[in-house]
Nucleic acid binder design. Structure first.
Length: 591
RNA sequence: GGUCCGGUAGCUCAGCUGGAUAGAGCAUCAGCCUUCUAAGCUGAGGGUCAUUGGUUCGAAUCCAAUCCGGAUCACCA
């Protein structure tokens, strides 16, 4: 059991015995004691004063003395300053924690809880390559999936590919018009980038035609709606829906190029999926489900034949789910997919990793699921994350201000290469080992950079400054792991010797932090927030770094000290590795 | 206009279920490698926590109003 929980329970116990009334965990707070005071954990007494009708000094004295007497194996000493009751936890407790956990590779991992959850993430369109925003999504999705697994869930990673619609038709039209049969193979361009180029070409041509229309005296709206190339794209979409062979063949071919490109990128990121869903399949299912919903009075039909749901009561207005011509809209496929997932997988929860620009859409989807009576409707969770912006504002593909995913990955690996060569610490590595190391460090820097910020908040990426390798970064943490591993290779831990003795301040700081890992994972799980973990791992690494500089491990004052420090080191390395893996980041043995 | 989110050091971010003197990194400055990996360590400077009022023993944190920025409110996806 975690120390905070232990303190909580024993304080409640003592309070009830002393004052003969019920107390709850929410009646008082337990914090880590501030560095400037003596102690490890602090019970804040203020909130208990009214209920007990006592002065803080007296109350603190009562609780403190009772615990020192009843549980000396946990509470070594205490002091009361103002309304703060500071406990020093017995060395025995920390030594015991270390002995039991320092060799465990995945400390605090939970037993299976029998619950099944799907994490839907990535969900790209197939008309252009991935950019930095997608990376935030992918890293978040992966990390949340790992955190859920660690917390005992069975996890399925799902991806809905938006493979049909006007966007891909635009690329297709442009390819027909301008490519002269060029392919990724003939040009040597990665498939997703290749198709993206034609999406850009479409927009260029479209803009040109709109301007021509304006020059001919058309008003803006007419010029925009009637540009010939746009009409062609819309026409192509109709042909696609009608199942036109030629269009479908081209569609398959171009999507295929995109998938080949995506696969390369996913592989570099170490990202994969257990279930792939394609909009070209799910949109039809969505229509069916809506039809069934009409019969159940979840949806209603208007005179013109369009189908709606009334969410006025929920404050979301009326929402269209099927057009008057019977074709599906964006949300229709999500309705179908939500049902399909339940039917096929019987999931208990579904986590949608989707940008905060779709908050309204996701609220509507959840309400629809509730109205349809989907068993897990209440457990649909929108992991809403903020956009990645540049110093000048949002990334816009039309203005060429997107940070391409493949480019940034390459850049990070190159920086890793340059820095590693400058430091010259791994001269005996083979070429393959070096490539692997650059990859681990470069991608690690990128992932950590995107995951260390609270997902809910938008974040700014400055390409000028790029991503640092010093301080609060992935490489700093990886470096500390490698450094510990180096020590552990040179110094053996004698498993038969129980560590003993007292802790110096930095040793204590380390062990207290190590003990907090489990609660931090739990917090990241509850809040759906990998950043909480990232911050924790950094704090742990930083503390280790100070400890390392302050005290010698290999040449400790006594053999007991050496044993204790080696165990602290091993536990730190294991915790760093487990934590980083929960962020989807690998850590090297040497760097 | 309705709804929602945000505003903390020069920059990027923690802290926000109220608690002790508001913390990190980067950048700036000063020290530290003949000892376990210096991608490091130690120290210094840097803040009207957007503003104003309220709640209370106590507010960056909760409430209200205001100012600023953003998202969204499509028979687009």
């Amino acid at each position: 059991m975690h120390i905070v929980k232990i303190i909580q329970e024993s304080v409640i116990n003592v309070l009830e015995k002393l004052y003969h009334q019920p107390f709850h965990a929410t009646d008082f707070q337990i914090n880590q004691t501030k560095a400037e005071f003596e102690g490890d954990y602090t019970v804040v007494l203020f909130s208990l004063l009214k209920k007990t009708k006592l002065a803080p000094a007296k109350l603190g004295e009562d609780i403190g003395q009772a615990l020192l007497v009843s549980q000396p194996q946990i509470y070594a000493s205490c002091n009361i300053i103002n309304g703060f009751l500071n406990f020093t936890i017995a060395d025995e407790f920390w030594l015991d924690y270390l002995t039991k956990n320092s060799s465990i590779a995945k400390p605090g991992k939970q037993e299976a809880n029998g619950k099944k959850v799907m994490v839907e993430y990535a969900s790209p369109n197939t008309n252009k390559p991935l950019h930095l925003g997608h990376l935030r999504n992918i890293f978040l999705g992966w990390s949340i999936a790992e955190i859920l697994k660690y917390s005992g869930y069975q996890v399925l990673k799902g991806c809905i590919v938006n493979d049909r619609g006007i966007h891909i038709c635009k690329s297709m039209i442009a390819w027909q018009k301008f490519a002269n049969g060029a392919t990724p193979q003939s040009t040597g361009i990665k498939g997703d980038h290749f198709v993206g180029e034609y999406y850009v070409k479409f927009n260029d041509e479209y803009k040109k035609q709109v301007n021509e229309g304006l020059a001919k005296g058309l008003d803006k709206e007419t010029a925009e709606k009637n540009a010939p190339i746009l009409l062609e794209a819309q026409d192509m979409l109709l042909q696609w829906e009608a199942g036109d062979t030629e269009v479908k063949t081209l569609w398959n071919k171009m999507n295929g190029w995109v998938y080949e490109g995506f696969d390369v990128t996913y592989k570099k990121l170490g990202s994969d999926f257990d279930r792939m869903y394609y909009e070209s399949n799910t949109y039809l299912l969505g229509k069916e489900i809506v039809q069934q919903g009409i019969n159940k009075n979840v949806f209603f039909k208007k005179e013109d034949g369009s189908v709606w749901i009334d969410l006025e009561k929920e404050g979301l207005g009326e929402k269209l789910v099927l057009r008057k011509d019977g074709t599906s809209v964006y949300i229709t496929q999500d309705i179908g997919l939500a049902q399909q997932r339940y039917d096929e997988e019987k999931i208990d929860r579904c986590i949608y990793v989707i940008g905060d620009e779709q908050n309204y859409h996701m609220k509507v989807l959840q309400e629809i699921a509730k109205h349809m009576g989907l068993p897990y409707a209440d457990d649909i969770y929108h992991l809403s994350y903020g956009m990645v912006e540049l110093p000048g504002g949002r990334m816009k593909s039309r203005e060429g201000t997107v940070v391409d995913a493949d480019d940034i990955i390459d850049e990070m690996e190159n920086v890793a290469r340059t820095k590693t060569e400058e430091l010259g610490k791994v001269k005996d590595f083979t070429t393959a080992e070096l490539e692997n190391l650059y990859h681990i460090i470069g991608v690690g820097a990128l992932k950590f950079f995107l995951l260390r910020v609270d997902p809910k908040k938008k974040m700014i990426f400055n390409p000028e400054e790029s991503i640092d390798f010093h301080g609060f970064t992935g490489p700093f943490i990886q470096f500390n792991h490698a450094r510990i591993k180096s020590i552990l290779r040179k110094n053996e831990i004698d498993e038969t010797v129980k560590p003993s003795g007292s802790f110096l301040p930095l040793e204590k700081e380390l062990v207290v932090l190590l003990e907090r890992f489990g609660t931090t994972v739990a917090q990241a799980n509850e809040e759906m927030n990998p950043a909480a973990l990232a911050i924790y791992i950094y704090q742990l690494s930083k503390t280790f770094s100070s400890f390392y500089n302050e005290h010698s491990i290999a040449c400790a004052e006594t053999t007991e000290k050496k044993q204790l420090r080696l165990m602290l080191s091993r536990a730190t390395a294991n915790t760093i590795k487990a934590g980083m893996n929960l962020l989807g980041i690998d850590v090297p043995e040497r760097m």
